[in-house]
């Protein structure tokens, strides 16, 4: 542990501020709570929102898992895990089932989460309407009025132009039937895991200074139209390592001729299946 800093880096005043904001976030599902985001020792855009949420939650008994793109061993995930071992001295794990807290960027683990686990998302842009309306003063008003026509028009225009909705990740959802919410840039493949999840899900956007939450067992609906229902991405392939046919797959270029193979994005899920197969 680095003795010059408080447990989990943040000072207690900052943790209290975060904790108050998190409780309000849970009380108003999908609503973006502004918070006094701090400069963290990692750059904005690299998970500072998730890190602040994790730091506000973390206790000595926690076991932390950090994933980026589904993998525990990507450099940024390693770096965040390393940061918390250093400033909080807590245990870390790569196994989804062993973790009490899971901080993630861009994926939800394939393994179903439990009620005693909390999933913390790193969020680059919390405002689902931002690309359609850059002004914060405006988007706040649209949320106040639950006026999500802009998004419906955008999705409808996709259908008119391409025959289907051309959004493949960060696919907007309606939480508890009220707030239009960004699920963070997870592939839409993961969207169904948000709906009525047993685990609490917290979202932190450090640079944009917003927190939000999806409580357990809360309705999360991916936007769609009656004649164009929400559709999941499917592969014609299986994972080349574990043979899984229902997980999210990464495409890997394996030689100079552009040959491809497909492997699970969730490295813990994949290695778990391989161990099981050998047993």
């Amino acid at each position: 542990m680095t003795p010059r800093y408080n447990f989990a880096f943040l000072d207690e005043d900052t943790k209290r501020m975060l904790r108050r904001a998190l409780l309000k976030a849970v009380a108003i599902p999908g609503y973006q709570v502004p918070f006094g985001s701090r400069e963290m020792p990692l750059p904005y855009g690299w998970g500072t929102g998730g890190i602040q949420v994790t730091a506000a939650l973390l206790g000595p008994d926690d076991v932390l898992k950090v994933i980026d793109q589904g993998a525990d061993d990507t450099t940024n995930a390693v770096n965040i895990r390393r940061f918390f071992s250093r400033v909080a001295g807590i245990a870390t794990t790569e196994h989804t089932t062993d973790a009490t807290l899971i901080q993630t960027r861009h994926r939800i683990p394939e393994t179903s989460l439990r009620e005693d686990q909390i999933l913390i998302f790193q969020v680059p842009e919390p405002e689902p309407l931002r690309t359609l309306e850059p002004r914060e003063a405006e988007t706040r008003t649209l949320h106040a009025l639950a006026d999500y026509g802009l998004m419906h028009v955008k999705l409808y225009e996709d259908i008119a132009q391409y025959g289907h909705i051309a959004t493949s990740y960060d696919y907007p959802v309606l939480v508890d039937g009220r707030f239009l919410t960004s699920p963070s840039p997870i592939p839409k493949f993961d969207n169904p895991k948000l709906d009525r999840s047993p685990a609490l899900m917290l979202f932190g956007a450090g640079r944009e200074k917003r927190l939000y939450a999806i409580p357990p067992y809360t309705s999360v609906e991916s936007l769609a139209f009656d004649d164009h229902p929400f559709e999941l991405q499917r592969w014609d392939h299986q994972c080349a390592l574990c043979g899984s046919g229902d997980s999210y797959l990464d495409e890997v270029v394996v030689d100079d001729h552009g040959a491809r193979m497909f492997v699970c994005s969730d490295t813990d899920y994949c290695s778990g299946r391989r161990v099981e197969a050998q047993a």
Partner: peptide, 20 residues
């Protein structure tokens, strides 16, 4: 600076979704 440079982090999950 953080957000411009975060583009060098892996985005292959989203890229895969866009690719397909």
């Amino acid at each position: 600076s953080g957000f411009v440079q975060h583009l060098k982090l892996p985005h292959y999950v989203d890229f895969q979704a866009e690719l397909s």
